[in-house]
Computed example of a mutant assay.
Amino acid sequence: MEHRLPERARPRVHALVTPPRLATRAAALALFGAVAATLVAGVLGGLGRLGAAPALEAPWAGQALLAHAALMIGGFFGTVIGLERAVALRHPAAFAGPVASAAGALALLAGQAELGRALLWLASLAFCAANVAIVRRQRAAHTGLLLVAAGAWGVGNTLFALDGASGPVLPWWFAFLVLTIAAERLEMTRLSRRRPAALPAFTAIVVLLLAGAAASAWSPRDGGLLFGAALVALAGWLFIFDIARHTLRAAGLARYMAVCLLAGYAWLAVGGVAWAATAHGAATRDLALHALGLGFVFGMVMGHAPVILPALTRLKLQFGIAFYAPLAALHASLLWRFGAGFSDLARRAGGAQLNALALLWFALTVVGAIVVWRLRHGRADAARPGRRRA
Rank of each mutant, 00 (worst) to 15 (best):
A140K: 03
M300T: 14
I73N: 06
W361I: 01
R195G: 09
A133S: 10
A28R: 12
Y265L: 07
I81T: 13
L145D: 09
H331G: 02
G212A: 04
Q112C: 07
F319Q: 03
Q112H: 15
P54M: 00
V307R: 14
F362A: 06
A58R: 11
A161D: 04
A215W: 12
L225Y: 03
R384A: 14
G293N: 04
I243L: 15
R384D: 09
E2M: 12
A215T: 14
V366D: 05
T189M: 13
L327R: 00
G351K: 04
A118S: 15
A165K: 13
P220M: 06
G104V: 05
L66M: 07
V232C: 15
L170G: 05
L170K: 06
L159N: 03
V301G: 01
A215S: 12
L357A: 15
I243Y: 08
F77V: 12
A161N: 08
A149H: 11
W121V: 03
P11N: 11
A214M: 03
G78E: 09
Q112W: 14
S166K: 09
A263G: 03
A183H: 01
P200C: 09
V307M: 11
P98G: 04
L65G: 07
G45K: 06
V169T: 10
A96S: 10
A140W: 01
R337K: 12
G378T: 03
F160C: 01
Q63L: 02
L31W: 06
G82Q: 06
F296M: 00
P59M: 08
T24R: 15
M72A: 09
P326R: 04
L50V: 02
G62M: 00
A214H: 00
T284S: 15
A27K: 06
W153M: 14
H246P: 05
L66Y: 10
G271Y: 08
G156N: 08
T284K: 01
V132Q: 05
A9T: 05
H142N: 10
R337V: 00
A27H: 07
L179A: 06
Q353A: 07
A277L: 15
L262M: 14
A53D: 02
I134T: 14
F342H: 13
M188I: 13
M72H: 10
V232E: 00
A380V: 08
T158D: 05
P54I: 01
L122W: 15
S124H: 04
A130G: 14
L5G: 05
A254Q: 11
A69E: 11
L359G: 04
